[in-house]
């Protein structure tokens, strides 16, 4: 368990959170802390406990043991108090398709009990931020995927929450819309909003100020991306990482895995990421895994977050 930052003064705090459903341990002793205006990216396979963690922190689900708090409010003591001050946006479009964009916004404004003046002011603010005002009278179900997610975000922030939970907000939308949504999240972060995002995309994880990786209910690693990449477990002393470009990467991969001195080898697109002992030179590596390929090249690289997560979950698997 590597956890670089556990302290009680975060906006979102979890200490030894555990949740069981019958015999199944959905969440196993998870501790984390997210500071103000951070974007915390939580990664992990489906069913690893991401949604359970979010539901506990949102005050919807009670933990079996451990404590959690959001904005200093305990999740057990006052879940309703938390709900008033957070926003939530789910992975699937969960607004009312038969209501118009404005009607959806108005509904959530009423749910959060905004006064009419405040409602007007906030509607103007979220429309300006998300741009959904262009489709004010369109039925929500007739919006494209990206605009649906913008509307969902607009509804989630209508009451100006200090914390937003986003459960796979970009699942299934196109790359342009994905980038635009992230731009919105950064904008919110600049305004001091703290965000907790789950995602499957590594490039999204790289954009977060903090990341965590959850596997089989356990938080395997969490911290700032650069800290994690610098962890000794990720690049052990006496090893180096190279990116190898060659004509036949698939063949090179199987050769690399068989080669003495290679600790790890994985495909990254058309290139190969290999971790080798310091004693193995670039030339020796290329000669061994891409023989006769004059155009093959190797360059030293820093580990990516994917490297971190793959390595850490393997270690976890081996330990278990």
């Amino acid at each position: 368990m590597v956890n670089s930052e556990v302290s009680g003064d975060g906006v979102i705090c979890a200490e030894h959170l555990t949740r069981r459903f019958g015999d199944v341990v959905a969440l196993n002793d998870v501790s984390l802390s997210v500071p103000r205006s951070a974007i915390f990216g939580m990664l992990g396979p489906n069913g690893s406990g991401k949604s359970t963690l979010i539901r506990i922190l949102c005050g919807v689900l009670r933990p079996t043991s451990g404590t959690g708090s959001v904005l200093g409010i305990d999740v057990r003591a006052d879940p309703e108090g938390i709900k008033r001050r957070i926003g939530y946006m789910s992975q699937k479009f969960s607004l009312y398709g038969d209501l118009s964009v404005m009607e959806n916004l108005e509904f959530y404004a009423r749910i959060y009990g905004l006064t009419p003046e405040r409602q007007k002011e906030r509607e103007a603010a979220v429309l300006a931020l998300t741009g959904v005002g262009a489709y004010a009278n369109r039925l929500a179900r007739n919006l494209s995927g990206g605009w649906k997610q913008r509307l969902a975000l607009a509804c989630a922030i209508i009451h100006e929450p200090e914390v937003i939970f986003l459960d796979e907000p970009t699942a299934g939308i196109d790359p342009v819309a994905r980038r635009e949504l992230w731009d919105l999240l950064f904008e919110l972060s600049h305004r001091g909003v703290t965000m907790f995002v789950t995602t499957h995309y590594m490039d999204e994880a790289e954009r977060c100020t903090h990341v965590g990786y959850i596997y089989l209910g356990k938080l395997i690693v969490s911290g700032r991306p650069d800290e994690l990449k610098g962890l000794a477990e990720v690049t052990p002393a006496g090893t180096r990482r190279y990116e190898v470009s060659c004509a036949a990467p698939a063949a090179a991969l199987s050769r690399a895995r068989a080669m003495v001195g290679v600790r790890d080898a994985t495909m990254f697109g058309t290139a190969l990421h290999v971790m080798v002992d310091e004693g193995v030179s670039e030339a020796a590596l290329l000669a061994a895994i891409a023989p006769g390929d004059g155009a093959a090249s190797a360059r030293p690289i820093a580990p990516t977050l994917e490297d971190v997560f793959v390595l850490m979950s393997r270690r976890q698997g081996a330990a278990a």
Binding site: K83, F93, S94, Y96, Y108, F165
Partner: peptide
């Protein structure tokens, strides 16, 4: 079915 019930549960309703 639509998931809006889940959304409502995280609001103060």
């Amino acid at each position: 079915e639509q998931g809006t019930l889940e959304q409502l549960f995280v609001t103060p309703v």
